[in-house]
């Protein structure tokens, strides 16, 4: 664990990855639920944000309903990987981009508002990098659970 999280920070992470309160004072609602104060909740969230642990608080849209997206991969020589990753990252339609241990060593997700925009991005990546993109759109989804349950037991010294 990169840093010790307070009990409040841990609880916020484990309880509010879904079902974030929809009311005029959501942080106060969380505070009431966690026996804390609105100021402490906001400050805990700012701490998580500052530590780089929080991407955002917001909506995760259904890919099928909200636009077009696909998983994609490139096979590039290792010494070029960082540069190619940088080129891929320049596209705002690329929202995840990972180096992975494989012949196909750069894996990213492209998301756009429609199919044409998506294909345009893939074509641009191919022409800018000079490598052919492996395009792997989702055909069926069997299971999605991205609300990470964090087992903090080992690091739970707790500041709160």
């Amino acid at each position: 664990m990169a840093m010790q999280l307070s009990q409040l920070e841990q609880n916020i992470i484990n309880l509010y990855q879904k079902g974030f309160p929809l009311c005029s004072h959501p942080y106060r609602a969380i505070a009431d639920e966690l026996n804390s104060s609105e100021d402490d909740v906001i400050s805990a969230i700012l701490t998580l944000d500052k530590a780089g642990m929080l991407s955002r608080i917001g909506a995760v849209f259904n890919h099928k309903k909200a636009g077009s997206s696909t998983l994609a991969a490139l096979a590039v020589p290792e010494h070029e990987l960082d540069d190619i990753a940088e080129i891929v990252n320049q596209f705002e339609q690329v929202n995840h981009n990972y180096g992975r241990e494989h012949y196909y060593n750069l894996w990213f997700v492209v998301t756009a508002h429609d199919d044409k925009a998506l294909i345009d991005v893939i074509n641009s990546i191919e022409s800018l990098t000079g490598y052919q993109v492996l395009v792997l759109p989702m055909e069926a989804s069997y299971h999605i659970d991205l609300a990470f349950k964090i087992n903090f037991a080992e690091s739970a010294t707790g500041k709160h």
Binding site: S55, I57, F61
Partner: peptide
Amino acid sequence: VKRFGLVVKHRKL
């Protein structure tokens, strides 16, 4: 909207 809440960076966690 399939989920509304904190989107965490799992590597940092």
